[in-house]
Design a protein around this nucleic acid. Structure first.
Lengths: 278, 278
DNA sequence: GATATAAGTCTTATAATATGAGACTATGAA
DNA sequence: TTCATAGTCTCATATTATAAGACTTATATC
């Protein structure tokens, strides 16, 4: 049961759309067999990459034949794989699907050239990150600095309370939603110095809104500076963020400003490209 | 309907285990609602990364409310995402799961250092590839030659009939299974010069078996030489392959032999490491 | 601003099937 | 041989997935 709480939020794809129904959250129990089936994959986490049949049964509470049936189906579709006897891990179909995602994600496709350009111009790591529920997910990255290995590679979710990326997204949300998410992540935001109270944090976010990009010092990776600007969906809600991470010693205020302007320009251009054809 | 045929084989994780029941193949129709739900993801392919609701309904043949229900569930779990109105693509949860797969796949984890070593020693691309049904799937790669961009990055399935990787796996299968897979891929194998008849191909594979590694000239990428050796599962069935791809002009017969020996040694070592603890 | 069309959800009776208890099989270990 | 574990099967029952079609929002069009 404890593991259930560790499962990150799962929700509709477009967190920008306000008040859409049908959101899922980590604490929601599946209500039907279809959800129970795919929900089974939710027990896998970075902390628990492999599950025994008995632990699955104890955690999920399904009967033996039912759980075996689920596992059989998921295995036959490649979403699960046996690892040792009565032990299971995630399966190869996921790898295959991720390839397709990389080929279809507009943010990845249009962001890639800018990642390349930014990493060529600066000794940095550049990433494109998607907003996804109460978390953000790196979907593409490039680096021109071997010392600067991102602790958040593709697919690893980051919290919404820390770092330039998170704030570059929060800052551009409608006020009500912004406050809701501030409340959800208030501890992180305070710990990181984003403000003392919700109101204070909101004020600071407004400033980011005016500047057009967010800057953070060592909030995600010690010694690293993050500079991020939002990418918008068709309704002009932030849906992703472009970010440059650079070693703190390599930059001063002026350089940060100039990189910030670059990042914002690139993010705006990505936004434009995304909506150009559709 | 035509697209259905393009969907690659989906089957149990361990294709090495002979005659296991419960295999899925592309032409099998889902028999229950659970399979129909995850089976929906099978319509996405490299050729068709985005689907409209109407096309989905026409292809899958489910009723409007049912299909909407499926989509809603898959969206709520992040496996699908809306793209434009009534259009859908694969969703961000897949990215998240792929990250977990990268962290849990023993072949990826134990293979990585060898990929690095091989690419440091030679100007080449080195990959680890998993056997998965009637196809092989790259799961990790590294390159020290920018001119040599693999046309098969992580997650893109390759056919079982072409290239050193495929033959390095076929060559180590029990004879019956080998013949079955030769029959399935006979056109490719012939086209590529692996032999004239099934028997001829089998004989050539036996030679690969004796040598311990397979070599192929420009079968996958023109001008490139592939050198591959199998990685085995607990039952000593081939389950994956380690491969070095190198530009043809850079190698002669002697060098190929020496790289082949290296690759085989590395593959054997990966096999050992995988089973060391479990 | 009215109308039309499409996107998505809800309601319902009915047919379908998912479920769990427990038996059964297969496999490997002691 | 016996014992334990992994995995499947059978079957009666209760659950629930299903499709037709009504309903409800959005989005576009005039």
């Amino acid at each position: 049961m404890a593991d259930i709480d560790a499962i990150p939020f799962l929700c509709d794809e477009s967190p920008g759309a306000p008040k859409k129904r049908g959101r899922r959250q980590s604490n929601m129990e599946p209500t039907n067999s279809l959800e129970r089936l795919i929900g089974l994959l939710d027990v896998f986490s970075e902390e628990r990459l492999e599950w025994s049949f008995d632990d699955l049964m104890a955690t999920l509470g399904y009967s033996r034949p039912t759980l075996y049936r689920y596992i059989k189906i998921l295995k036959s579709y490649g979403f699960l794989a046996s690892s040792g006897s009565a032990h299971y891990t995630l399966g190869p179909r996921i790898v295959e699907l991720d390839y397709l995602v990389r080929r279809s994600d507009a943010v990845v496709l249009h962001g890639a050239p800018f990642l390349r350009a930014l990493t060529e111009r600066h000794r940095c790591t550049a990433l494109v990150v998607r907003w996804y529920g109460n978390k953000i997910l790196c979907v593409a990255s490039e680096s021109s600095n071997d010392r600067l290995v991102s602790s958040y590679p593709r697919g690893r979710p980051m919290p919404l309370g820390r770092g330039a990326i998170a704030r570059s997204i929060l800052a551009f949300l409608p006020r009500a939603q912004m406050l809701r998410l501030i409340a959800l992540n208030i501890e992180d935001l305070k710990a990181v110095g984003a403000g003392e109270t919700s109101e204070d944090i909101a004020r600071n976010l407004m400033r980011i809104h005016r500047t057009g990009y967010a800057v953070a010092y060592g909030e995600v990776t010690p010694g690293a500076v993050g500079i991020a600007a939002p990418i918008f969906d068709a309704e002009r809600h932030p849906m992703a963020s472009l970010c440059v991470v650079i070693v703190g010693d390599l930059v001063n205020g002026a350089l940060i400003d100039s990189i910030g302007t670059e990042v914002k320009a690139a993010a705006d251009e990505i936004t434009r490209l995304i909506h150009e054809l559709s």
